[in-house]
């Protein structure tokens, strides 16, 4: 099929934008090689510092716009952690804030044309999801000991059903990091790939171009939404998992 497309004319390479490349030439990608991943993660760090550190440097009682946005982001995540995970979840607020702010900035930086979306890579999201999964499980066992397993023992269900439910609960517990990570990477990747496909259509013919342009604009608008919503979803799921670890009783 790919050979067919190549001979037909327009080249579809919607996934090429996700290629990890060394920044300074060469092909070898060792674990330490500075790549476009490094570059765009660096930009994310810079943007975060710009917003949350430089933007709040005046410590104004009456904030300017940048400081307002920084306070808004802080309040958004803070109240999310407090509402979902409870007061004792606030201890982990800096970690959750780190995840949220990194994902949000990576997603939005990825929307810049010709940029590289770090959050479109499974490697990135899996590590974050695993970090959440492992630390939440560790917190659960540290706080409740063996009682944390009560999370899988649905005491409100009839006794006969409980073993069956326990199996389902255990499976769903271990599926968490998978869905947690693939949801984010998949959404970001799909949006970018579709835009790329539309972009190829624009170059194809004069009749399709306007339609494809409208498609790009619409897709881009949706990706802006997705960029925020997926960061929000990732964060709130983290809070929910944290709540399960802090209060495992059903």
């Amino acid at each position: 099929m790919s050979a067919d497309v190549e001979t037909a004319g327009p080249q579809f390479h919607p996934m090429e934008q996700f290629t990890v490349e060394p920044l300074f030439g060469g092909h070898a990608i060792n674990w330490y090689t500075p790549t476009n991943v490094t570059l765009w993660m660096g930009f994310a760090v810079l943007a975060i510092i710009l917003l949350l550190v430089i933007g709040t440097r005046r410590r104004a009682i009456i904030p300017n716009r940048t400081q307002s946005v920084a306070e808004l982001a802080y309040g958004f995540v803070y109240s999310m952690v407090e509402d979902v995970a409870g007061k004792d979840g606030l201890k982990y607020f800096p970690y959750i804030m780190t995840l949220f702010i990194f994902i949000v900035f990576s997603n939005f930086l990825g929307l810049i044309p010709m940029s590289f979306s770090t959050t479109s890579h499974i490697a990135v999201t899996v590590i974050m999801a695993l970090a959440v999964f492992i630390s939440v499980t560790a917190i659960g066992f540290y706080k409740h000991g063996i009682g944390f397993l009560g999370l899988f023992w649905v005491s409100s269900a009839p006794l006969a059903l409980r073993p069956v439910l326990a199996v389902i609960e255990v499976i769903s517990y271990f599926v968490r990091p998978v869905s947690h990570s693939i949801r984010l990477a998949g959404n970001v990747m799909a949006g970018h790939a579709v835009i790329e496909v539309f972009a190829v259509f624009v170059g194809m013919s004069l009749f399709i171009a306007p339609l494809a342009l409208v498609g790009i604009v619409g897709m881009f608008a949706m990706d802006v939404l997705v960029a925020f919503i997926q960061a929000y979803v990732f964060t709130i799921l983290t809070c929910v998992y944290l709540k399960d670890a802090l209060h495992p009783a059903h």
């Binding site: 674990w31 330490y32 991943v37 993660m41 760090v45 780190t98 490697a123 590590i127």
Partner: peptide
């Protein structure tokens, strides 16, 4: 490579925050 730079990034962000 990605995991290495991700961990570095997250640590830097965490420290800054």
């Amino acid at each position: 490579n990605q995991i290495f730079w991700l961990v570095i990034t997250l640590i830097v962000i965490y420290l800054v925050l």
